Amino acid sequence: MASRIPTRALTAGSRALFARPPAPSTPIAFSRAFHQTKTQRDRSNLLREFSLKDRVVVISGGARGVGLTQAEALLEAGAVVHALDRLPVPAKDSDFSRVAQRATSELGSRMTYHRVDVRDQKALGEIVGGIAEKEGRIDGLIAAAGIQQETPALEYTAEDSDKMLGVNVTGVFMTAQAVAREMIKRKQKGSLVLIGSMSGTVANRGLICPAYNASKAGVLQLARNLAAEWGEHGIRVNSLSPGYIVTAMTDSLFEAIPERRTAWPDANMLKRLSYPEEYRGAAVFLLSDASSFMTGADLRVDGGHCAW
């Protein structure tokens, strides 16, 4: 028998709930429509702790590679992104431009590019300060700028070592410092993510990069110390340590040293290399309220490489 709910018995909220679609003509159909509509109504609240809506995030090394991939994930989660890199302004047909265009046309957000060398403390401070002034806040940082050089220890020059540590440790430090200063100035909480590496925990068998590995160990220790200092301000600092990633750089490396194509995957428990997209979720997790009680920690995503 058909049933109807008297309009006068509904509250204003209930009338809005059942306005679309029209109330079905049977109790079973009505129940299904109720739960379907309620699900649609509540969907914006599902896993809301992962939302970065309207948060302002700075990403160094954000013009390409893993940094750009993570930037796109943050945009999808609702963040406004400011990418820092030492490269010239990305070309209109670049991956960066594609992501920036998607941010405005599809995601209702925006991504802005700033050219800077993270070793230039003065310029870095001015750019980050300008971002904070324009946006009125900075909520997060991914410090992903870094370089790599494979050279035997006996052949390493002091100049090369200084450059490696200057970008990978001092540059990360100064970027975190610039962002934290703006947060503390505004009495604002936030989350900083320093990109380390599994190479900061172990020595890579068959990969000759002593200065790089030392620099990434420095990043992990830096994150712990900054977390200890800035925790009282509500600023969380963690590191993210990827394993081997398939990039243009590793592809060219495999061309030069083909045996690594099989040796590297065999060194972890999943027997494969990772892809930049596999670190999207980690970035959102560490910057969002989903990790609100996590600081001074290293999130290692290495396929089990270091767990043997």
Rank of each mutant, 00 (worst) to 15 (best):
P88A: 07
P88H: 00
P88I: 01
V89M: 14
V89H: 13
V89E: 10
P90G: 03
A91H: 13
S94Y: 14
F96T: 05
S97K: 06
R98K: 11
V99D: 01
T104L: 07
T104D: 12
T104Q: 09
G108I: 03
M111R: 09
Y113A: 12
R115M: 12
V116W: 04
D117T: 13
D117G: 09
D120C: 13
A123M: 15
L124Q: 01
I127L: 07
V128D: 06
G130R: 04
G130D: 08
K134N: 14
K134Y: 06
K134E: 15
E135F: 13
G136Q: 08
R137C: 07
I138L: 11
I138M: 09
D139K: 15
A143T: 01
A144T: 01
P152H: 03
P152R: 07
A153Y: 06
L154F: 06
E155Y: 09
E155D: 10
T157H: 06
T157R: 10
T157W: 08
A158K: 14
S161A: 13
V167K: 02
V167M: 04
V169N: 01
T170V: 11
T170Y: 14
V172D: 00
V172T: 08
T175S: 05
Q177F: 06
V179R: 00
E182T: 04
E182W: 05
E182R: 03
M183N: 12
I184A: 04
K185T: 09
K185A: 13
R186D: 10
R186V: 02
R186Q: 09
K187L: 04
G190N: 04
L192K: 02
L192W: 03
V193I: 06
L194D: 01
I195R: 01
